[in-house]
Design a protein around this nucleic acid. Structure first.
Lengths: 107, 107
DNA sequence: TATGACTATATCACAACGTGACATAAACAT
DNA sequence: ATGTTTATGTCACGTTGTGATATAGTCATA
């Protein structure tokens, strides 16, 4: 297990949705809009969050630059990033199982 | 929507499992053991995490003291805490739906 | 009865994270 | 021209989880 996966799991909701939006290459602003769409407006990422996180993820080789246009830096997910997502998704399934198991106790 | 719910959602995995373990009243150390059990050993909470979080949650009336024995302070979840858990569980279901929708893209 | 393992709580410094404010500027429609 | 949207970046701030450190009671066993 790569060290970087331990570092990123458990992932924050923010980081998870950023990576989930990279099913195809996108730039920062495009990610913000895509996350809004996927969460039906519930989640709007701040500019500090998105550009800070993208820089950090690029440093850790979770994502990489796909294209560098004048006013857009477009990122794509790497193979390490995909592996990270598989691990995180497994954790989210465990979480979901526990939700189903115990939700009756909180009604 | 109570202010405290906005403050606690999205919840960290740690906070979520602490509350999920309170399907019945427990003390700090008992919560640590219960969370280990629920996650099959994956998650062991540090002492700083558990006692810090319990103090904070008590201050915010998410949990309350159920019994105060010599060497054990036993907590239970409040009605506000249960409502918070219902909101958080709804969010986790949205997350899980998105996992199912897009997991194929990360294989 | 001493020894070690386990139970139980508490505090502290530290690093990491998300956030909004602020700044800058290009693109585009009215 | 004017305002809105697109687009990126930096910064200070508060919150969080964590492990180290400390303290101490309980319990089995050698």
């Amino acid at each position: 297990m790569e060290k970087v996966i331990k570092k990123y799991v458990p992932m924050t909701e923010t980081a998870f949705y950023i990576l989930l939006s990279l099913t195809e290459p996108r730039h920062g602003y495009g990610i913000i809009k895509r996350v809004e769409e996927m969460t039906e407006g519930r989640l709007t990422l701040g500019s500090g969050t998105i550009y800070g996180t993208l820089t950090k993820m690029q440093r850790d080789e979770i994502i990489t630059i796909y294209a560098d246009e004048k006013r857009k830096t477009i990122y794509e997910i790497t193979d390490i990033g995909k592996k990270l997502m598989r691990v995180e998704m497994k954790r989210l399934k465990e979480l979901h199982n526990n939700v189903l198991r115990f939700e009756g106790d909180f009604q």
